[in-house]
Design a protein around this nucleic acid. Structure first.
Length: 569
RNA sequence: CGGGGCGUGGCGCAGUUUGGUAGCGCGUUUGACUGGGGGUCAAAAGGUCGCCGGUUCAAGUCCGGCCGCCCCGACCA
């Protein structure tokens, strides 16, 4: 490709709105342009990289036995009513109406569509297992787009769905996808960490996320510093601590705490610390009420609570319900003297506390020197709080959890029969009975991977593309365009690289050398061949690797060999 | 949705406090020189100051409303 005929709108300075490296460099290098918040166009360079990533994903999917399909973006409302997700999917799907005012959504994911498709054709267990996938634009009406391509409203995703006869089929398909993902991220040079995760809107179990540790990620993961335990913060488990031994020390006492509704206010009045206080949160799970206790400095993990209670709908009780149940304004709830209809459950840590502070279920009052057992009973202890850095590893004995920011690149789930039951993807098994297909689903954010690669591979001068994702693998810089002898040498180098099969950019533009060097670094070609002074004098070119500046000086005729030496064949 | 910031040639910014001819750097165009790290000189083009309304002799600047963008939070495959 001749640079003079290419679309290379590089920017010397990044637009003010871009903060994180991938956003800044992709804009500056002329890979993407913004259209609206969280909506981007891909320019020729950006599209080339995107396609390379996409093709790696495609190759590995095919190698794993998955079959490519292409499903509609427009998805009729009826389908989503049948799965129950028209109103519940988060974030709410982007909705549109056709001329006769029928509702559609722009697919945020495709469980419904693929299951409906398979439901039409599936008859016998002999057709199973099968895994279908597609690479397509997805739409999500994100509450807040951010970070360039990291979180957007419209993005390229690879989504695969496996249909099997049994849990065993599912395990096999899941494992095949999991291994394919490991290979994909190896090829993209993205050192991912695989963490346990929540299923969220998708439903399912055994969910794992492939995370790239990065300051600019928006997920938080915990990793054990001793074993290989790793988990998304949303579901990091906590090892139950040793329960308190010994007897009650002090006598419970009612104290006045006017207007002290928060942990901080109570501590200030009583001159104590949040660790000596237990928060009591009133929750409503369907028609039941629970008083949920965690230590004052901890935060309750609603996902854990939800998992424990197995409720359809879980929410904090509203002000009115709290007043009715506790007899006090919000902020003074406690475990002592609650009506029987409120079940008390507590985080394990509560069992380790003694002589602590709780709300008194009276306005402007708390109890001090309270103890479990002596002053109130707990129906159930469970792991309910969110993990924090330094917590003991829930798996091994030695480790502590360390906290990291991360970018979620991929997610695998076991879905089971939910969608196949809702949408009728049934088959007749060998025993003659009809059964729902057992499903799994597996997604990779392809355009997010593009940003992640840049986050992971860049320096102060620009991007350092891994060869597999580079828009062009090599750039040839002709420094003096007026010199016919040099031009001839550069053309020879360019042709020899093309013959070997390298994607090559030939920068023969009439520009100063400085600009060409700076742009080559910014765009991040893995290898660079310079035709200039040394070529004129010695008949040699300089071949340099972007990643570590390793350089070979060779005769013009050996330029392609040198590139091969530096990049590998 | 809550909090904060921003909106002035393509990009980065000044000017708004105190209303009075719209500026700077980079980029762009033309010419010349130059040709190893965003080079030099000269000339030039390019702006309804986000939009609508109001105040005023006069609004980029003051007032009201709206729109857009970014960041933090909440939320989230």
């Amino acid at each position: 490709m001749l640079a003079s005929q290419y679309y290379l709108p590089t920017l010397r300075e990044a637009p003010a709105e871009a903060e994180i490296p991938s956003h800044r460099l992709l804009l500056r290098g002329g890979f993407i342009r913004p259209l609206s918040a969280g909506v981007f166009s891909f320019l020729p360079l950006g599209l080339r990289s995107l396609r390379k990533i996409e093709n790696i994903v495609r190759e590995e999917m095919n190698a794993a036995g998955a079959l490519e399909v292409f499903l509609p973006v427009l998805s009729p409302r009826d389908l989503w009513e049948r799965s129950g997700r028209w109103d519940t999917f988060q974030p709410q799907p982007l909705r549109v109406q056709d001329r006769s005012e029928r509702w559609f959504c722009l697919g945020p994911t495709h469980e419904e569509v693929i299951t409906d498709l398979v439901a039409m054709d599936l008859e016998s267990y002999r057709e199973l297992p099968v895994t279908l996938y597609q690479i397509q634009t997805k739409f999500r009406d994100e509450v807040r787009a951010r970070g360039g391509l990291i979180r957007v409203k419209e993005f390229l995703m690879k989504d695969a769905y496996s249909f099997g006869r049994s849990e065993e089929d599912l395990d096999e398909a899941y494992d095949a996808m999991y291994q394919a993902y490991v290979r994909i991220f190896e090829r993209l040079e993205l050192p991912t960490v695989i963490v346990r995760a929540e299923a969220g809107s998708m439903g399912g179990h055994d969910t794992r996320e492939f995370m790239l540790l990065s300051e600019n990620g928006e997920d938080t993961v915990f990793m054990c510093d001793s074993c290989d335990y790793a988990s998304n913060a949303e579901c990091a488990q906590i090892r139950p601590p040793q329960a308190r031994s010994g007897d009650k020390l002090g006598e419970r006492e009612l104290v006045s705490t006017p207007e002290a509704r928060t942990v901080e206010q109570v501590c200030e009045i009583l001159g104590t610390t949040p660790e000596q206080l237990a928060k009591t949160l009133i929750y409503r799970a369907d028609d039941r009420f629970f008083a949920v206790m965690v230590r004052g400095d901890r935060s309750l993990n609603e996902a854990k609570l939800s998992g424990l209670l197995k409720a359809e709908e879980l929410r904090m009780a509203n002000d009115e319900e709290v007043r009715e149940l506790t007899g006090a304004e919000v902020g003074f709830a406690g475990p002592i003297g609650l009506p029987d209809e409120v079940t008390i459950i507590a985080d394990h840590e509560i069992a380790t506390m003694s002589d602590f502070v709780v709300g008194a279920n009276q306005d402007d009052a708390h109890y001090v020197a309270v103890d479990v057992g002596a002053d109130f009973q707990v129906a159930q202890f469970a792991d309910l709080r969110s993990a924090v850095a330094g917590d003991a590893c829930p798996v091994c004995n030695e480790g502590r959890l360390t906290q990291h920011r991360a970018i979620e690149l991929a997610h695998v789930f076991k879905l089971g029969a939910k969608y196949s039951e809702d949408l009728g993807a049934l088959f007749v098994d060998s025993d003659g009975t009809q059964k729902p297909a057992i499903m799994g689903c597996y997604g990779i954010g392809v355009s997010r991977c593009l940003a992640a690669i840049v986050e992971e591979h860049h320096d102060e001068n620009g991007i350092i593309w891994p060869r597999a994702a580079a828009p062009f693998e090599v750039v040839v810089l002709l420094l003096d365009t007026k010199d016919e002898e040099l031009r001839g040498a550069a053309e020879q180098v360019y042709r020899s690289l093309q013959e070997v099969g390298y994607d090559t950019m030939f920068d023969e533009r009439d520009m100063s050398a400085g600009i060409k060097f700076a742009e080559a670094d910014l765009i991040g070609y893995p290898a660079r061949v310079v035709v200039g002074r040394k070529t004129k004098q010695e008949g040699e070119v300089e071949v340099r690797r972007r990643s570590d500046a390793e350089e070979l000086v060779v005769p013009v005729a050996q330029a392609a060999d040198a590139v091969q030496t530096l990049l590998g064949s």
